[in-house]
Design a protein around this nucleic acid. Structure first.
Length: 431
DNA sequence: TCTGGGGTCCTAGGACCC
DNA sequence: TCTGGGGTCCTAGGACCC
């Protein structure tokens, strides 16, 4: 059997851990720049707050609903996630973290007749130790465990743990389950199924396998098999060791026309990619920069372009990535465009221990210097706080009104951020 | 005024090879 | 008028996920 642990309204629940006064209050968490709603508490969902709703529209549509909004606080969420995973690893034989708020439990070898009770106790323990409500679905396959976890979440009678053990329970569960809620069935396939009159998961599972394969391709066929009780999605495959691409991108609070400003953003994204690469002991062979205008402003000239650079020798040093990104940006920058978003992506990722040096251009001493500079940056920033030391190209500047002085500004708007309760004692007051 | 960010895998089609 | 066949690799785009 497989278990799926899923935190209830994860980001909102994290905010509530240190704000128990919000326990029955509608809460939402916003994306970067306080742009859109990315998480909603149960109360907010009941009010009809859609996922992805722009914050300004939320204010317009729910002026007096008493909704409390937070900027996203990924430091807090990551830390709480780590604490939950730690408890799961203590209690379950084998755990695969699937996302920041989900983990699969490999439950072979455990007594099936005791799994339900064991699961209830596990969820209660996570709640007691971390303050986070979690739900657990147990079933023969991962896709069915996902189904079960949604029932566990929805109906209090399950005491946070729902198990699909035999054929009859499976049929019943799928019959009452909307097909568009099935893991692996997205918007497109769901729309196509609806047009054929298939609205629940059982209808999908009852289609001929060959038809599903031909019409919806391999991933949907795997979902079909999983719903029919065949375990095809392997836990091992999902154990993410090294990411194959790494991306850092942002939308800007306003719009940008100045190439120097744009360059500062791109330099920071490149530096962040370099940091992420080093964190997983990797190097990249290729770097891509992309810039975009504001797609919501149809009255403005639209522009969307990207360019890539291949390194002679794979690298993860901040200096090399920032330099390459700056050079690429100069090739695609077009004056007169109001830029809204930019990003840096690195790919061709391999292990830092197995670098293939370029035959003609490789300079071991220069490389060693770059690597030690990057390592020093990491050590300082780990200890003193992110972005304590950055390259000159990464500095955001804001001139004073008289133009005589320059100060640093935060590029991201996070006006409603909660304190980093669990990781930075100095940032909030007790009591 | 204000509209998120970061991934994975699959498939089709073109480039290229012998 | 005639102008092969079979294979691999790469890339862009689609679909999905959280």
């Amino acid at each position: 059997m497989v278990g799926l642990v899923d935190c209830d309204n994860f980001f909102c629940s994290c905010e509530r851990v240190f704000r128990p006064d919000l326990m029955n209050v509608p809460v939402v968490v916003l994306s970067n720049n306080d742009g859109c709603v990315v998480a909603r508490s149960r109360e907010a969902k009941q009010l009809g707050v859609r996922e992805g709703l722009p914050y300004y529209q939320l204010l317009e549509q729910f002026p007096s609903a008493g909704i409390v909004a937070f900027s996203s606080n990924y430091t807090l969420y990551g830390d709480i996630s780590g604490r939950i995973m730690q408890i799961l690893r203590q209690e379950a034989p084998d755990v695969t973290q699937y996302s920041i708020d989900e983990a699969f439990l490999h439950l072979d070898g455990m007594d099936p007749s005791k799994l339900k009770q064991w699961g209830e106790r596990l969820c209660a323990k996570v709640l007691r130790y971390t303050g986070m409500p979690v739900s657990l679905g147990i079933a023969p396959t991962k896709t069915l465990a996902k189904v079960a976890s949604k029932y566990a979440k929805k109906y209090p009678g399950y005491r946070k743990c729902c198990m699909i053990a035999d054929r009859q329970q499976r049929i019943r569960a799928l019959e009452l389950f909307p097909v568009d809620d099935v893991w692996g069935i997205g918007r497109r396939i769901s729309a196509s199924l609806q047009s054929r009159g298939i609205t629940n998961a059982l209808g999908f599972a009852g289609l001929p396998r060959e038809f599903v394969r031909a019409r919806y391709h391999l991933p949907a066929e795997q979902t079909w098999r999983e719903l029919n009780g065949e375990n095809v999605i392997q836990l091992e495959c999902m154990t993410v060791t090294h990411k194959k691409t790494i991306m850092t991108s942002r939308s800007f609070p306003g719009m940008i026309t100045d190439p120097a400003d744009l360059n500062t953003h791109v330099a920071n994204y490149a530096a962040r990619c370099a940091r992420k690469l080093r964190a997983q002991q990797s190097v990249c062979a290729m770097l891509t920069v992309f810039i975009q205008s504001n797609r919501f402003r149809e009255d403005l000239l639209q522009y969307d372009n990207s360019a890539s650079h291949t390194f002679a020798t794979s690298t993860a040093t901040t200096t090399e990535l920032v330099n390459a990104a700056g050079a690429l940006l100069r090739t695609i920058f077009r004056p007169g465009i109001y830029y809204k978003r930019a990003g840096v992506m690195v790919s061709g990722i391999s292990s830092a221990g197995a670098i293939q040096p370029d035959l003609f251009e490789f300079d071991p001493e220069a490389r060693a210097r770059q690597v030690s500079v990057s390592n020093a940056l990491d050590r300082i920033n780990d200890r003193m706080g992110a972005d304590t030391v950055v390259l000159g190209a990464q500095q955001y500047r804001q001139k004073s009104a008289d133009g005589k002085s320059v100060k640093f500004v935060n590029a991201i708007r996070r006006a409603l951020k909660s304190p980093d309760y669990t990781t930075r004692l100095g940032t909030f007051k007790v009591g």
